[in-house]
Nucleic acid binder design. Sequence first.
DNA 1: ACTTAAATGAGAGCACCGCTCTTGATTGCG
DNA 2: CGCAATCAAGAGCGGTGCTCTCATTTAAGT
Lengths: 231, 231
Amino acid sequence: MTTVRGARARARIEITAAIKDEARAQLAAEGAAKLSLRAVARELGMVSSALYRYFPSRDDLLTALIVDAYDAVGAAAERAAADSAGQRPLDRWTAVCRAVRAWAVAHPHEYALIYGSPVPGYTAPRDTVAPAARVGLALIGIVRLAHAGEGVALPPLPDALRPEAGRIAADIAPDLPPALAVALVAAWSQLFGLVSFEVFGQFHRVVEDRDTFFAAAARRLGQDVGLLPRG
Amino acid sequence: MTTVRGARARARIEITAAIKDEARAQLAAEGAAKLSLRAVARELGMVSSALYRYFPSRDDLLTALIVDAYDAVGAAAERAAADSAGQRPLDRWTAVCRAVRAWAVAHPHEYALIYGSPVPGYTAPRDTVAPAARVGLALIGIVRLAHAGEGVALPPLPDALRPEAGRIAADIAPDLPPALAVALVAAWSQLFGLVSFEVFGQFHRVVEDRDTFFAAAARRLGQDVGLLPRG
DNA sequence: ACTTAAATGAGAGCACCGCTCTTGATTGCG
DNA sequence: CGCAATCAAGAGCGGTGCTCTCATTTAAGT
């Protein structure tokens, strides 16, 4: 199906990749707002209208970059999870968190593209939902192992939250107790609160040693999902 | 000093306000990316160049909107803190959190303007730092009262975090113990992680009953800064 | 009260943007 | 080999932020 049919098909793949690379370079240099199709085409030595053979619109190019960014941060998270296999769950949790943060500070504009203000319409395109879930799934995986192992310690669920907790658990991890699922979703979003505040400059003149601050906060987040300090 | 000198000065104030109002309307309708000086001028019945007498650039207009947005969400937080005076600290904490969230979901584009991707340069203009601190200060105020009252319960500080914790405490609340200050900063950013994920659509098809989910998460955040369930 | 300087609005214009359409090669399949 | 799909290029449309010039109006100083 994806076999290269000929020189033309091969060229199309290469040019598509070149466009994305140049767009990514401009994104890293100036941010999504300044990304211009004309500048990308100019840098690639082609005319702007030719670019529309590969991406039907600027938003579609951005969507491609969004998918790639989700995949990149998701891969970083999964790699951290894999590299920390065998360690204690809480250490693995913080390793994944730190991997996410490291990727974010290394690629601030790409991070802003996916976890900042949604720049196109209100709803994300279909293609982005699966890549967007990878970080969350990596976190779930670690907690799942801990739950199967020595178990996790969680406070009881408020009655009002019980129905919603059941829904969430059914959606993201039917094998986990509802209280754990809802704690996971909360911790997941709070992790990106920490990262976003750092990347977007809200910690300016507030937090200096961000590495150790983040490590401690991430560890605390792990405890909030029931991971034990001496598991 | 701010006395109105004449009709011209009065008109300038009114026109400046009208420009901001129209810009805010367009912001709410289409988002910051689509905000156009020309469209604002057109809607106000003036020519685009005339608008530059009031705002030197589009970014300056946006900065004005940013300041207003910070003030609006800060005022909402302070109002929630004032209205809940006398209640138990943890309830007041969640009240402030819910006020922030309520403002955010009511003004998603303005929220995105201040807590989404920073659209102008990397560093926020000077005028924004004071208004941006209001929500944090409201939270600090509540915890400070709780600390002066029946006290707060916090886990011990890791040794590695001790220097940074001292710095943070000196910056934001010298009267509070360092462990509490660092927990506050973390909870502060995590609060906006929860809100951002909801406003930016990351909770789509994950969290349904967002009111109760958020209330529980905010309450847990309050416990993370040492507020006691039955204080 | 008169003059003078500052403030304001209008208009033209520049460079850039996303995007569309047409035209003429080039490629590859039947 | 011929025909259809693919592609680069160019011109062009309406839009943008922003600058400059030029009247006109207002406010202040003498």
